[in-house]
C-alpha cells in the first residue's frame, strides 16, 4: 500500500499521470507532510537528472530505474536476462515435476477393492475360525482409536477402485537416484533409531525420522510398483467339487485386498 502511494508520488513528480489525475492530485495534495517531502525530493531528483547533462540518454531517465533507486536505496545491477531465464525455466520445470509426482503418490489409496467376482466371494465366506479372522467391523469396534487405512478407504469407493497397475510408473533412472538416496538415509536412520521397546519409540522418535520414514515408504512403493509378476496364486475354496471330490481351486494373479495370516 505504501509502495503504491510512493509510486503515485513518483509518477506525479515525473509527470506520468494523465492530466485529470495530475490535476486532482495537485489540488487535493499528495498527502501528509512526509508524502509532501517525498514528492519534493523526487521532483528534485527529476530536475537534477535533467540538469545532469546531455549525456544521460532519455531511456535512462525512465521511471523504473529512478523508482528502484528510491525504494532500494541503490541501483540494481543489470542482469544477463538470457542466462537468468534459462536457469529459472529449468528450476520451474523441476519443481513442477516433483509436485506432480508427489501428488500422484499421496493420492493413492491404502487399499483397493477386488474387482474379480471370485475374490469377492472368497472374502465374503463365513469364516470357521472366528478368533483368527480379520473382520474390519470387529477391528473398528474392538479398537476404535485406531482407524486403519483399510477402514478409512472403505468409505471412499472412488479411490478404492484404483489398482496397482494404474499407478504411474517411474523412469528407471529416477528410481536409481531415489533408491540410492533412500538407502543412505535409511542407513543413517538405522544407526540413530535402534530401539526395541514400542512404547519408548512411540513417544521418543526423533522428529527427523519422519523424513526417513517417507524415504523408506518411497522405496517400498518403488519396489511394489516395479515388482516382478510371479506365478499365479491359488485360492482354495472349502466348497467341495462334486465331480472331483476335492476343494475348488482357482488361479489369480494377486491377492491385493485379501488379508493373509502369518
Amino acid at each position: 500500500m505504501k509502495h503504491k502511494h510512493q509510486d503515485s508520488i513518483i509518477r506525479l513528480a515525473f509527470g506520468e499521470h494523465d492530466s485529470e489525475t495530475e490535476k486532482r492530485l495537485l489540488e487535493a495534495g499528495v498527502g501528509d507532510a512526509d508524502s509532501q517531502k517525498e514528492f519534493e525530493l523526487v521532483s528534485l531528483i527529476r530536475e537534477g537528472l535533467k540538469k545532469a547533462g546531455h549525456d544521460t540518454p532519455q531511456c535512462q531517465m525512465s521511471i523504473e530505474r529512478v523508482r528502484d533507486a528510491i525504494l532500494n536505496q541503490n541501483i540494481r545491477e543489470t542482469r544477463n536476462s538470457a542466462t537468468f531465464w534459462s536457469w529459472a525455466s529449468v528450476g520451474v520445470a523441476a519443481c513442477a515435476f516433483l509436485y506432480v509426482l508427489s501428488n500422484n503418490r499421496s493420492s493413492l489409496p491404502e487399499t483397493r477393492l477386488v474387482s474379480n467376482t471370485e475374490k469377492t466371494n472368497f472374502l465374503q465366506e463365513t469364516p470357521t475360525m472366528s478368533d483368527k479372522q480379520p473382520d474390519t467391523q470387529v477391528v473398528s469396534a474392538w479398537q476404535p482409536s485406531v482407524l486403519s487405512g483399510a477402514n478409512v478407504s472403505a468409505h471412499k469407493p472412488k479411490e478404492t477402485t484404483r489398482k496397482v497397475a494404474d499407478r504411474p510408473s517411474l523412469p528407471a533412472k529416477w528410481n536409481d537416484i531415489t533408491s540410492s538416496i533412500v538407502k543412505r538415509t535409511a542407513e543413517t536412520v538405522a544407526r540413530v533409531a535402534t530401539r526395541s521397546d514400542a512404547t519408548r519409540n512411540a513417544h521418543a522418535v526423533p522428529f527427523a525420522l519422519s523424513d526417513a520414514s517417507a524415504s523408506i515408504q518411497n522405496e517400498l512403493f518403488d519396489s511394489a510398483v516395479t515388482g516382478e509378476q510371479g506365478e499365479p496364486i491359488i485360492l482354495i475354496n472349502t466348497d467341495t467339487d462334486t465331480d472331483t471330490g476335492a476343494q475348488v481351486a482357482t488361479e489369480v494373479q494377486s491377492f491385493e485386498n485379501i488379508p493373509i495370516g502369518g
Binding site: E110, T111, K132, Q133, P134, F255
Partner: peptide, 13 residues
C-alpha cells in the same frame, strides 16, 4: 493378518 499396503510393505489388518 496383513494385506498389501498401497505404498509397499504389509499393512497389518
Amino acid at each position: 493378518f496383513c494385506r498389501d499396503s498401497a505404498r509397499g510393505g504389509a499393512l497389518i489388518d
